[in-house]
């Protein structure tokens, strides 16, 4: 195992890990405020499909913007059902996941995609209408830093979205744990009744975190197809949204620890491909493909063991609707 090999594995780890990281950053805020967004998987898929199409029509920047806006709309839908109507978050989240997956499969289907592309940009050449993959985000290696062994390829030889995500993690940690806004969000998730009595607008905070989670989930999907796997296939997210939800528990609802959780699952995914290159599991790659799901189940179980559970506690009001006693 040469240094270069290690470097390339680590580079891959980061580039997959950012999918998880983006998804978890928004979702941590939602869960800290008491909202479980089980729709993450579907919103991610929708983000991937829309950014796939809008990138071909209008380019990368617009694609991220459009995905973000759609994500916010899905977040609003989630908030309306769970916050205003106080409906069961698991049911609503599942429905949103189905809606997102369905819509993504629908709009990215070759015939519908062509129609949409023509409507978005009539000047597109026919090769673009037929394209099976999106142009990837350009890599922007940082001068000097990229040459540092190990850390260089891992952190400093990527596209700009990776850098932004890596900077967002500590920023969002700071906002959540060191500012009054963060305190408000956390108190709404721990004890909404008390927060309400102290004059915090529980409903407004939860609406905001839902929208944030929606936007980040969709952008995680956009990054998935623009930064990591440019070929569109139906079901492109493949459960990564659900794995994101598991790694948030592993990260104890901290944006900073989510970096490590994301890199862990990113690393598992990269090792899948590498193990297959080594001939391990070549005959039956399915067992290697099961790894992330199996590891998620195992970590969720280990974390539930008494001694661990005491150290990381979920937001007390997670997935519980709040209403004032009238």
């Amino acid at each position: 195992m040469s240094l270069e090999w290690v470097g390339s594995v680590l580079a891959g780890t980061t580039s997959v890990g950012v999918v998880y990281l983006l998804g978890s950053l928004g979702e941590i805020y939602a869960e800290r405020s008491g909202i479980l967004n089980l729709g993450l998987e579907g919103i991610m898929a929708l983000g991937a499909a829309t950014s796939f199409i809008t990138t071909i029509a209008w380019g990368h920047a617009v694609a991220f913007f459009v995905a973000g806006v759609l994500g916010i709309l899905m977040g609003l839908l989630l908030a309306f059902f769970t916050v205003s109507l106080r409906l069961n978050q698991i049911a609503v989240g599942l429905a949103i996941t189905m809606l997102g997956s369905g819509l993504s499969g629908f709009i990215a289907f070759p015939t519908t995609r062509k129609t949409i592309l023509r409507a978005l940009n009539p000047e597109l050449p026919s090769t673009a209408l037929e394209a099976q993959s999106a142009p990837m985000l350009p890599s922007a290696p940082l001068p000097f830093l990229k040459d540092v062994p190990i850390a260089g390829p891992m952190l400093f030889n990527h596209n700009p979205v990776v850098y932004v995500s890596l900077i967002l993690a500590p920023t969002m940690w700071f906002l959540l744990f060191r500012t009054s806004v963060g305190l408000k969000i956390r108190s709404v998730g721990e004890n909404p009744g008390m927060a309400d009595a102290l004059g915090i607008n529980v409903f407004r905070i939860r609406y905001l975190t839902c929208m944030l989670s929606g936007a980040f989930s969709a952008m995680a999907g956009a990054y998935l197809i623009l930064g990591f796997q440019p070929f569109w296939i139906e079901g492109i997210t493949g459960g990564r949204g659900f794995i994101t939800l598991s790694l948030i528990i592993l990260s104890a609802w901290s944006p900073l620890r989510a970096v490590f959780g994301s890199l862990l699952f990113g690393g598992i995914e990269v090792l899948q491909y590498r193990l297959q290159l080594f001939g391990f599991g070549a005959a039956s790659p399915q067992f290697v493909l099961m790894l992330p799901y199996a590891i998620a189940v195992i970590t969720l179980s280990l974390l539930s063991i008494e001694s661990f559970r005491k150290r990381i506690s979920a937001p007390a009001a997670l997935a519980k609707p709040y209403y004032r006693e009238e």
């Binding site: 069961n88 429905a95 949103i96 189905m98 809606l99 369905g102 819509l103 499969g105």
Partner: peptide, 22 residues
């Protein structure tokens, strides 16, 4: 139309059923 058209329809039905619960 792709098969996912039916998935969209199903999920909208799902959301509306949840709404009825309200």
């Amino acid at each position: 139309l792709p098969f996912s058209a039916i998935t969209v329809f199903q999920s909208v039905i799902f959301l509306c059923i949840i709404l009825a619960e309200f």
